[in-house]
Design a protein around this nucleic acid. Sequence first.
DNA 1: CCCTTGATTAGACGGTTATCTAAACAGGTG
DNA 2: CACCTGTTTAGATAACCGTCTAATCAAGGG
Lengths: 123, 123
Amino acid sequence: MSKLQEKVAALPAERCCPALTERELTAEEAELTAAMFKALGDPVRLRLFSKVASHPDSEACVCDIADVGVSQPTVSHHLKKLKEAGLLTSERRGTWVYYRVEPSVLAAMGHLLTPTPASAQVA
Amino acid sequence: MSKLQEKVAALPAERCCPALTERELTAEEAELTAAMFKALGDPVRLRLFSKVASHPDSEACVCDIADVGVSQPTVSHHLKKLKEAGLLTSERRGTWVYYRVEPSVLAAMGHLLTPTPASAQVA
DNA sequence: CCCTTGATTAGACGGTTATCTAAACAGGTG
DNA sequence: CACCTGTTTAGATAACCGTCTAATCAAGGG
């Protein structure tokens, strides 16, 4: 969490790592990238992320998305994880806390999954 | 592993679930999709996947990719996980076993990360 | 037929994680 | 200030996961 988290936070996010098909990842690249995938690798977190991402302006109050079948503290725990992974940001406005999807993150992860030129040739 | 695995295996893979930004995922969709992300959420697995994906024809012998800093049984373990998640297929040809990336899987995961129309309007 | 090389399976161990309950904190309202 | 609602933090527990060594399976070559 500690040092890895700093590295993730320090990333431009728009361009962390090459596409998975471009060349093999270095150990460090793999560690950074895996952290993002890992954050989305839990059903509850994925639902929370999806709820925020599909809300208007990609923003939602905790109270709007907390209904995912686990206790509220657990929801808070997962939101924290998503935040640490750089996938969400949060802001308190009065009583409520709003979570927002960083659009650049989606683009970066999408880039990671760009099909290889080689397979494009084959296809 | 069991029932989830069957469901994952039964998917067309080309179109498992809607984009994360399209609408909030159902519990079942989230479980299926999270399984894929989870498989890529480990640095060693991600490196193995990247090694296969970036090889010519998106195919590689275990002997070509096994150098990721862990023992060979551990490599085998991770390859099995990737295979169970539907991200890789394997085939034995004589002495060696070859792993291959299913191109449709990359496309499906890329689709998941499609930016929301709303954010596109904003941008 | 044995032996070597490549790969997987079995079983165990240590660390991580998801979850809960209980408690604390933050902000608004009467 | 007291209270209520919304949110996070603390601490504990049970399950899961990544890793290893040892053993087993698969395929060829003397």
